[in-house]
Computed example of a mutant assay.
Amino acid sequence: MRLRLRLFEFEDLPWFPATIRAGMMDYLRFMISALGTYRPIAPLLAEGLARTAQTRVLELGAGAGGGTETVLAALHALGQPTTITLTDLYPQPAAWADIARRTNGNIGYEPSSVDALAVPAQLAGFRTIFSAFHHFPPDAATAMLRDAVRAGTGIGVFEGAGKHWAELLLALTVLPVAQLLLTPFFRPFRLSRLVFTYLIPLIPLCTIWDGSVSLLRMYSTGELLALAHAADPAGAFAWQVGKKRHWWGPQVTYLIGWPVEAAQPAKTHET
């Protein structure tokens, strides 16, 4: 899919009700975790951590933390000792506290709002952003990458799709049905989630819109690499861009970079 449209997403709007946003994030967290969406990129992230001699991942735009537990488990399985700190412009402390409890504190969180374009210096770690980079227009996306380069920390951008028309069809058909069937099993339990899914179906309707728009807003691999070069004209970082495929079919699109002193030239991969 080459088409890229700058349509709005409900979850980006400052006035959007926090209850509906939380319900949408709970769904995304459940699906991304259940499907192991980001497991294929664990070796890339482990390499970034090793090259930058870091043991902490700082997740930007974390939403409800979907997939973070899967990534942590995959990193530990690769022998990479890691902790993860969740951050977001719109923090989800209730959801994050549940993740922190389940992981015995290996996944923690910053309760105050964090701007991914200007990360406070005290929040250290290899920066990542999962399923959220498409929310940022080119100028803001470039600023996010530039801030990581300026800080001298690595950064990985990961989108849980390959930007194909078939994925858009799934977002409009199969995934809404799955949301209606699975919502009662989401944890932590929220009565509001049931009300706004079944009685007043704002959560599924907004999820269908945002999920479809997300695919249309995604950057291609070529666009990601162009953003990286715009953010890092001096070549302080080495960048890799490409797609990683799950054994069962779906792809993850990625951009990852770290300081050049222990890196390789920019390159593109598709596996």
Rank of each mutant, 00 (worst) to 15 (best):
F30Y: 12
L202T: 11
M31L: 09
S220D: 08
P265R: 02
G154K: 04
P93S: 10
I84W: 09
F126Y: 15
R21L: 15
F10K: 00
T83K: 01
T268V: 15
E223L: 08
L58C: 08
V174F: 14
T271P: 08
A124S: 10
W209T: 05
F126P: 04
Q80W: 02
G65E: 02
P176C: 08
Y90T: 11
H164F: 07
T271F: 15
L89G: 15
F130D: 00
G160T: 05
L89W: 14
H135I: 08
R101P: 00
I203M: 11
G160N: 04
Y198N: 09
A230N: 13
R217Y: 03
L175V: 15
P43D: 09
D232P: 10
R193Y: 01
G36F: 01
I129V: 15
G152M: 01
T271N: 11
T271G: 11
V149E: 05
A234C: 05
R6I: 07
L7M: 12
G257K: 03
T153K: 04
R101Q: 14
A42G: 07
L181K: 08
L205M: 14
L182S: 10
A124T: 12
G66Y: 02
A73V: 03
A116C: 14
V174R: 08
S131F: 12
K244T: 14
A97K: 04
M218N: 11
E9R: 06
A64M: 11
W258L: 10
Q80L: 05
R217K: 15
G105S: 02
G61R: 08
R102G: 13
I20E: 01
L168N: 06
A74P: 03
F186H: 06
H246I: 11
R150D: 14
E11K: 13
W96E: 09
V157R: 00
L169S: 02
L205K: 03
A94N: 03
V213P: 01
K163T: 01
T221L: 12
V241R: 06
G108T: 14
K243S: 04
M25G: 09
G63Q: 09
F136H: 13
W15F: 14
Q240L: 03
I41C: 09
F130Y: 11
P138G: 04
E261I: 00
R4M: 02
L7D: 07
G23P: 10
R217P: 12
Q264M: 12
L255I: 10
A94W: 03
V260L: 09
L181F: 05
A100F: 10
Y254Q: 01
V119A: 04
N104C: 13
F237C: 05
K244W: 14
S212R: 05
A18M: 03
W248E: 04
T253P: 07
T85R: 14
W239I: 02
I84S: 09
R29S: 13
Y27I: 10
A231G: 13
P111A: 08
E11M: 15
P111F: 08
P93H: 07
W239P: 02
A263I: 02
R217H: 04
A262P: 00
R187V: 09
L117G: 15
L5I: 11
H246Y: 12
P43T: 09
L182G: 00
I129Q: 06
E261C: 03
A263G: 15
A230W: 03
A230D: 15
E270K: 12
F186V: 01
S220F: 02
R102D: 14
P204S: 11
G160Y: 06
W209D: 06
